[in-house]
Design a protein around this nucleic acid. Structure first.
Length: 428
DNA sequence: GCCCATGATTCATC
DNA sequence: GATGAATCATGGGC
């Protein structure tokens, strides 16, 4: 027996418009068979109506004596349909995209147990950004962590909202289906399936949330990682300080750790930046000494003038020159570098002839300064010290182009360290 | 937009 | 780990 025939037999025929009216149904029960399509349409029309509107009709239908028969037939049909649909839609494999997003959020410390606001990722970013654990690195680190924590918070708050909405909607639909199951055949399995569909829908929304969170983290990371490539020129004063040190220790431009720290402090940069600067400077100076000649002379003159000034003051006070620690005019006589004296004399390691005699090579632009220096230093006892003592012991780049020297790195202001101490200045 | 200066990074070497 | 050398990437002058 086919389904339509069975339903027809079960219902005994219900005319259009009578399904909701028991009297009409009763009247028409004995009538010839009706068009089954019309009957089904009626039933479907009821389910399409709002709950309130259809309440009376549903009640009538539920009370109909033939209802159980109709219901069982519908259930049978439904079961067949559901089985075929289930075969198609169920058992979705886990979405690889979601898995990727989940893994990433977990790795970044956004999802999963809190790792100090994603400290691992933050540390990685900070390490990449800093190089040294200087103040800048610290700031970037905390900044990164704060922003990551913010992302994490937003993510969890949104996730919670979605879950809540999902739960509410699921409950609502389940209640609705249970209610409707009194009128039309809805099996618990079907309800389960509907719940699964809802969950799938919400999980796709969740995926969007995860995606945008990942994007936010990526943007944050790239911003902090790119920061290491950001270059800001040091300010003029910082460059001057570094250059002064470099040219006043030209024979051995390897500042000690202490010197680096002091330079860093004075230039308001990190020790790493000081190291970078000296690394670059040494290389570039060596590569093109000629180009840096004028700059070397300028800084040497400056240093020498400062030194002479200090010396003059010391002489006038009839007391020994006292090293000071300022930056301009700060170097003690012991640090009036070789380059200073050399520059005053127009000396550069490359300007010494074979006999070690000075070959004057003062840039014309520097002549007035040198003249001034000359006059000034002649008035002082320091000049004699500066020009006649062994203050300037020319060092030169050896044939292998390295700073061949028996000297050791200098400190910025401190007197020469004990012999053999690494990074102490004995060049002067 | 090109070019140069320069701070930062990477990699090899010691 | 410090350094040299090469290289990258950006800022700034033109």
């Amino acid at each position: 027996m086919d389904d339509q025939t069975r339903m027809l037999a079960g219902l005994g025929g219900l005319s259009q418009g009578d399904v909701g009216d028991p009297d009409s149904v009763r009247k028409q029960l004995g009538q010839p068979q009706q068009d089954i399509g019309d009957i089904l349409q009626q039933i479907m029309a009821i389910t399409d109506e709002s709950l309130d509107e259809a309440q009376a009709r549903k009640h009538a239908l539920n009370c109909h004596r033939m209802k159980p028969a109709l219901f069982s037939v519908l259930c049978e049909i439904k079961e067949k349909t559901v089985l075929s649909i289930r075969g198609i839609q169920d058992e979705d494999p886990p979405d690889p995209q979601i898995m990727r997003l989940d893994n990433m959020l977990l790795a970044e410390g956004v999802s999963g147990p809190e790792k100090g606001g994603g400290s691992a990722a933050a540390a990685a970013a900070a390490a990449a950004a800093g190089g040294s654990p200087g103040a800048d690195g610290g700031i970037e680190h905390s900044d990164y962590r704060a922003k990551l924590a913010q992302i994490r918070q937003i993510y969890h708050s949104e996730l919670e909202k979605y879950e809540q909405a999902c739960s509410e909607f699921t409950n609502h639909v389940m209640n609705l289906l249970r209610e409707q199951s009194r009128t039309r055949p809805i099996s618990p399995k079907e309800i389960e399936r509907m719940v699964a569909i809802i969950h799938r829908k919400f999980s796709s929304i969740q995926m969007q949330l995860k995606q945008s969170t990942c994007e936010a983290v990526m943007i944050l990371r790239s911003r902090f990682l790119d920061a290491r490539r950001k270059r800001r020129n040091f300010n003029k004063q910082a460059t001057e300080v570094l250059n002064e040190y470099f040219y006043s220790h030209l024979s051995n431009p390897y500042p000690s750790e202490e010197a680096k720290e002091e330079l860093a402090k004075k230039c308001a940069i990190t020790v790493s930046q000081v190291s970078n600067w000296f690394g670059n400077k040494r290389i570039r100076y060596k590569k093109n000494i000629g180009k840096f000649q004028e700059e070397a002379n300028l800084y040497a003159v400056k240093t020498a003038v400062d030194a002479a000034s200090v010396s003059a003051q010391a002489s006038q006070a009839n007391s020994p020159a006292t090293p000071t620690s300022g930056l301009s005019g700060s170097y003690s006589l012991s640090h009036v570098g070789d380059a200073a004296a050399a520059a005053y004399l127009g000396l550069h390691p490359s300007n010494l002839n074979g006999a070690g005699e000075a070959v004057l090579n003062i840039a014309p632009s520097l002549q007035p300064q040198v003249d001034t220096l000359h006059r000034a230093t002649h008035l002082t006892a320091g000049y004699e010290e500066l020009t006649t003592s062994s203050l300037y012991v020319p060092r030169r780049l050896d044939p292998s182009n390295s700073w061949q020297d028996n000297t050791q790195p200098c400190s910025v202001t401190s007197p020469p360290g004990p012999p053999g101490s690494v990074h102490s200045d004995t060049s002067n």
